[in-house]
Amino acid sequence: MVKKEEVKTILIIGIAGGLAQLTAKKLARKYPGARIVGVDTRGPGKNLNVKNLTFIQIRYTRSSFEALFRNNVFDLVYHLGRIPNTILLIEGLEKKRVKFNVIGTNLILDLCLKFMVKKVVVLSTSYVYGAISDNPVFICEDDPLRASLKYPDLHDVVEMDRISSNWMWKNRDSIKTIILRPCHIVGPNINNTINQYLKSDYVPVPMDFNPMFQFIDEDDMARVLTVGVEKLPTGVYNVAPDEYVSILQAKKIIGSSGFRIPFFLLGSVAGIVRKFGNFMPEYLVDYLKFACLIDNSSMKKYLGKDFFRHDTKKTLKRLSG
């Protein structure tokens, strides 16, 4: 375990993201004497007001990361900078996204080892399991990552997870690494695919399927990243609360409608919706048919049963309006 007083400098990659900023705030409170360095390709945003945080806008390239690690001594590194495929909307960035998520992750991990970082936290996602017709309820950490078999869009996400996992086990004696695969993170500060889908009235909703979903509040997720990772030993962890709601119920709680159509039309309508700028990736369509619920027992073993503070339905309610 890394002692509190040993943490002097923390690196957060992807600090412009809502979850990263929440995490930074919590880290600043947890380690008041530590310096936090937040990097991103994007600007800092309006709300990045964290004590002891230095924001550096960098290009995600080998040279900029090497310079970053050479000029700082990091005790904790948070890799929260996975570029989501919503970026596909911006033409020409697809290759860069894949390059950063896959090759960039490998580089960051190697630099952590080279510059003797004490602990690395990688934020992956439960999307890596894929929404497959024979998914069991619940999917464990050891289950195969099948998303890339079906969705090319998620290939880089799966590859990033695999690279991190292999690297973690290979270097488990030298560096403590935690890989988190959270369920759908929701909250007013998060702007991921599922948040956009849940809040939008102009998205297709299946009338003949209604799978169960797990949602984690952004604040709970930030707590896992700060308080939680302190208690977790090296390993891969699914992160999800015990609660679950169906997709229709979730939209109902939020108060967004969407238009109900049979599932066989969903893919085509999602394609039309995409053209109007309302992002609905192809892979999301299957998540609206087959449940992809994850098993949280490994995480609960270390964090306890009552770690999460937020009720899923109340969290969804906060998204309304």
């Binding site: 017709s133 024979d134 998914n135 069991p136 309820v137 003949d208 399927f209 049979p262 048919k289």
Partner: peptide
Amino acid sequence: AMPFIGDMMSRYGSVL
């Protein structure tokens, strides 16, 4: 995986 039927079966308690 059957439209409507799959959903109804799940709601009735059937499991894959």
